[in-house]
Computed example of a mutant assay.
Amino acid sequence: MLTVLVAILLGVVEGLTEFIPVSSTGHMILTAKLMGINDQSELLKSFEIAIQLGAILAIMIVYWNRLLTMFGLKQRSVSKGGVPQKQLNLLHVALGISPALLTAYFAKDFIKSLFSASTVLWALVAGAIFMIAAERIGSRRRPSAETLDDISYGQAFMIGIYQIISVLWPGFSRSGSTMAGGMLSRVSYRAAADFSFLMAIPIMVVVCGYELMSSYKLFTPGVLGFFALGFIVSFAVAYIVVVAFLKHIQNIKLWHFAVYRLVLAGMFWFFVMR
């Protein structure tokens, strides 16, 4: 089942979609169906989880200096008076990720039962509508948090609450729910994207680590090469996508991704599911 071509294609799909609001989980499920792969296979699930760690490594490199500062390994910026400037800290991230992690822990069996192509298609549509609505509402109000360091504890927690939607509904998109939720919480688009990417690191490390430990027996010498190839491809593609997205974020709005999601859902239903 795991060939070099499959490893490369799934690695590319994961890297392309992990951090933009189109749902990497949804794309992996739809890609597996298009390729005629059994997406319920435990080996494939473990492979998909393993290559997510490649995408996480990419985001860690992009935000390396920020991470060092948050962990106290790099000096914080100071004002002209020598007073440390207000900065996002680990408590912000903890407040942002705790609702999703608790939901995933207590509802993991229910969530796994929803992994199907039809569920993903509905989630793509619902997520697109939510993103369009959030952008329209957010554009009418001046953000109270223009930068990442302006985000309050309350806003961090509210973004975490919005993130629950993506946990309970595969295909809704974690980054889509957090970016849109951030704009609804009066956080600027850029700050919401930065916070979404930072939250992805601990969430995915915990989730991926738990799942991989549960299926460690599947990691035989015969599949390690394919896992490594998928990991490398995912890392390289994700790094390019994140850097490009952050560079051009002012020109790439949520509604652009929403239109893509609607078109994808419509085409997949018409040509594959109907």
Rank of each mutant, 00 (worst) to 15 (best):
I29K: 06
V167Y: 00
L121C: 04
I49E: 10
N65R: 12
S196A: 12
L246D: 05
G266P: 00
K74H: 07
L73S: 01
G222N: 13
F270H: 08
Q40E: 13
A100Q: 01
P221F: 13
S46F: 15
L264P: 00
L254E: 12
L57Q: 11
S113H: 08
I137P: 10
F271T: 06
H256W: 09
I159A: 05
I29D: 09
Y260L: 09
Y189A: 05
H92G: 05
A104E: 03
S23V: 07
S215N: 12
K217C: 00
L224W: 12
I240N: 07
S196Y: 05
Q85C: 06
S214C: 05
M199G: 04
I61G: 02
Q85I: 08
I37F: 13
F231H: 02
I159R: 05
I164Y: 02
V83P: 09
Y189V: 05
H27D: 11
T69Q: 14
R174T: 04
N251W: 13
G36R: 11
A134G: 10
F106C: 02
A58K: 10
G182Q: 01
I203M: 13
F106N: 03
V13R: 08
P143Y: 09
A58I: 09
P99Q: 03
A117T: 14
G11L: 08
F19G: 04
I59M: 01
W169F: 15
S139N: 15
V205Y: 03
G138C: 09
V272F: 10
V167P: 01
L88Q: 05
M35E: 11
G209Y: 00
S166K: 02
T17W: 03
H27N: 09
I159V: 08
P221L: 11
A100S: 14
V4M: 14
F195A: 03
L95E: 07
Y239V: 00
F110N: 06
A100R: 02
V233S: 10
F226W: 08
A191D: 05
V167K: 00
V223T: 13
V62R: 09
Y162P: 02
A128C: 09
L95P: 00
A258Q: 08
Q75W: 01
N65Y: 06
L114F: 15
M28S: 02
I56V: 15
M179P: 01
V4D: 12
S175Q: 10
Q85E: 15
K253M: 00
G154D: 11
A156H: 03
I203S: 05
L9D: 05
L124Y: 13
L73M: 11
V93M: 11
V207P: 00
L91H: 11
S139I: 01
G81M: 06
R66T: 07
I201T: 06
I51V: 14
D109P: 10
M267K: 03
K247W: 08
A145C: 09
G138L: 11
L246P: 01
F197V: 02
K217Q: 01
L68V: 02
I97P: 00
N251H: 15
M70G: 04
E48Q: 12
A191V: 08
R140I: 00
M204H: 00
L121R: 03
G81N: 13
S77H: 12
W169G: 03
A180I: 09
P84C: 07
W269N: 04
L10S: 14
F245Y: 14
V223K: 06
M179A: 06
L67R: 00
I8W: 13
M273S: 08
S77W: 11
Y239N: 06
